[in-house]
C-alpha cells in the first residue's frame, strides 16, 4: 500500500496534520501500537522540519506486512552540514518555531533513534530526501 500526503511550507497551524492522518491509517491497518508510535514520532519531527525549513514537500508511506517505509522529501535549502544537524542540540530553527515548543535541535537525532534504518540525501538549495524504514515489531 502506497499513500502520498502533501506538506505545505510555513503553515504551522497544520503542523502534525499529516502525522495524525498517518497514525489513523496505520492503526486501521493493524500495525502494532509500539511500531505506530515510533513511526508517528519520527514522521512528526520530519513534518515539522519540512514546514519550518523547506519550500514545500510531501510524505510517502508504503506499508507491507513486514515493514513500513516513510519517505519525506522536500524542495528547499537542504541541510548544509548533515553531521552537525544530527548532533543533539544543534538547531537553526526560528523564534516562531521555538515559541511553539519545537526547534531544540533534537528532531533528526530523534528520527534516528526511532527508525530502524535511516538514509538522508540532501543538496544545497535543492532538496532533502529522508528515507526511514520501520520493522513491524511483534507484540
Amino acid at each position: 500500500m502506497h499513500t502520498v500526503f502533501p506538506v505545505e511550507a510555513g503553515n504551522f497551524t497544520k503542523a502534525g496534520n499529516v502525522s495524525s492522518d498517518v497514525k489513523r491509517m496505520l492503526k486501521q491497518l493493524g500495525v502494532p501500537h509500539k511500531t505506530v508510535k515510533r513511526i508517528v514520532v519520527a514522521l512528526f519531527e520530519a513534518e515539522v522540519n519540512v514546514i519550518a525549513h523547506s519550500w514545500g514537500g510531501q510524505v510517502e508511506i508504503t506499508v507491507d506486512p513486514k515493514q513500513v517505509l516513510v519517505r519525506v522529501v522536500d524542495t528547499g535549502p537542504g541541510i548544509p552540514d548533515l553531521d552537525l544537524a544530527m548532533t543533539e542540540g544543534f538547531s537553526t530553527a526560528s523564534e516562531e518555531v521555538r515559541e511553539m515548543g519545537y526547534g531544540a535541535g533534537m528532531g533528526l537525532p530523534n528520527i534516528r533513534n526511532n527508525a530502524d534504518e535511516l538514509k538522508i540525501e540532501t543538496g544545497a538549495n535543492s532538496h532533502t530526501d529522508i528515507h526511514m524504514t520501520f520493522y513491524i515489531d511483534e507484540e
Binding site: G16, S20, K23, V41, F44, M100, G101, Y102
Partner: peptide, 9 residues
Amino acid sequence: QSIRTAELS
C-alpha cells in the same frame, strides 16, 4: 502544538 504533540505521543 501541546495537544498535537500529546496526541502523536
